[in-house]
Design a protein around this nucleic acid. Sequence first.
DNA 1: CGATTTATTGAAGAAACTCAACTCGAGTGG
DNA 2: CCACTCGAGTTGAGTTTCTTCAATAAATCG
Lengths: 242, 242
Amino acid sequence: MSTTHPLLAALARFHELSQAERAALNDLPFTTERIIAGDGVAWAGDRPLRSFLILEGLLSTSKAVADGDLQITAFHIPGDMPDLNSLHLDVLDSDIGAVTGCTLAFMAHQDLRRLCAEQPRLAALLWRATLVEAAISREWVVNVGQRPAISRLAHLFCEMLARMGAVGLVQEGSCHLGLTQQHLSEATGLSPVHVNRTLQQLRAMGFLSFGQGRLTVHDWDGLRQVADFRSDYLHVVTQQAA
Amino acid sequence: MSTTHPLLAALARFHELSQAERAALNDLPFTTERIIAGDGVAWAGDRPLRSFLILEGLLSTSKAVADGDLQITAFHIPGDMPDLNSLHLDVLDSDIGAVTGCTLAFMAHQDLRRLCAEQPRLAALLWRATLVEAAISREWVVNVGQRPAISRLAHLFCEMLARMGAVGLVQEGSCHLGLTQQHLSEATGLSPVHVNRTLQQLRAMGFLSFGQGRLTVHDWDGLRQVADFRSDYLHVVTQQAA
DNA sequence: CGATTTATTGAAGAAACTCAACTCGAGTGG
DNA sequence: CCACTCGAGTTGAGTTTCTTCAATAAATCG
């Protein structure tokens, strides 16, 4: 019926779906909203009654520490559902905000819960999506805890390019990535000044270009090596035609 | 029926369960195994066919980086299911090992999947458990990324005491915690030497005692303050009688 | 009790931080 | 159209936190 549901499209990109599952997804009500860059979408302490799928744009999850500083704990790209955890964890523990302008598809928890009860395999796929986010979070602990500045930044770039690539948003090693050096600082736990200097190293070594909201990787294998990047933790399944 | 299933006990500690749900849990086959301190339980790259619940002991999840160093990304205590993520993420991305001697209850994925399909609310509770682990992982990113050594260590101690307390393993601010300073180092991303010196500060300030496999907190509010610890991210639900 | 972890100490060095100034480009409004 | 502002990026210099290396003390274990 009419166009396919955005969540159906997102899941079908990576998984085979039965006719019944497709039908159930297409029956799932949703509303689309447009968010301005820099705006918050949800806050720690909120008890959302709905979750959203990213159709377009870049979001971040972050937490504030005592002195007011921010740590970004995740970036979210099209196809992700950043606050799906609120489906079973009623109160949010982090802030979610739009890094760039975004288009989001909101779905009521009520409807999602019914969907999960009626279609256990869809429940499993949504569960799986939250597990991938958890796996990425573990890798971020490693990145921030162990790697020197240059590897840390390189690893973040590798991850973002790999994830954007998996959803078809990379052309010739380049993708739109509307991050400022301030964002990189908050994501890596490095000071903005040190991010700046480390970025210059990565550029000087010929690995990448970064600026004007765009990341271009010139030497993937080289970048990957300084980053100590292995993509297994992203759990990207064998891709099939969209 | 005999004694209750360990997973039933673990879930019933925090959630009301229907008679049907209890029955379904009691029907779930499991086998108990004993693990020696220091032994690995599962490795990155493994494709487990079963998951386990911790009945006793302390486990860690860790990842190795290029130079061979280790980052611990999580500790697991009784009541946790450290590799439940392998239920839907077929290949493990981290190593799981026993910090102390452990008793584990293994359950086949096959059986767990059937349970989830037949009892959607139990599926939701297991899903929820993985979401709590994810929330803890996010806080670890913050801890390792933003906090100075003393807060970082203090925060880890706060978290462990809070979690152990939630499952009834704390008496008078003290719990068994078989971690070495090496473990603390690998969990916080600090060098062992710096952990040692920072620990001495925490002791000298009268916040805690730590050693001989035991953590005792003398000044919870003080520790909590230097740690910048707020327990909301642990998502501990209102406890009911065990 | 000897052997092997684990914990502790000293001292020098390095990675990253802070502070402060300055540049640049993209608006914006006079 | 130009002056102005504002955010983002860049640079220099001094400081701090944390690391590394190396040796010693203390615990733990067979």
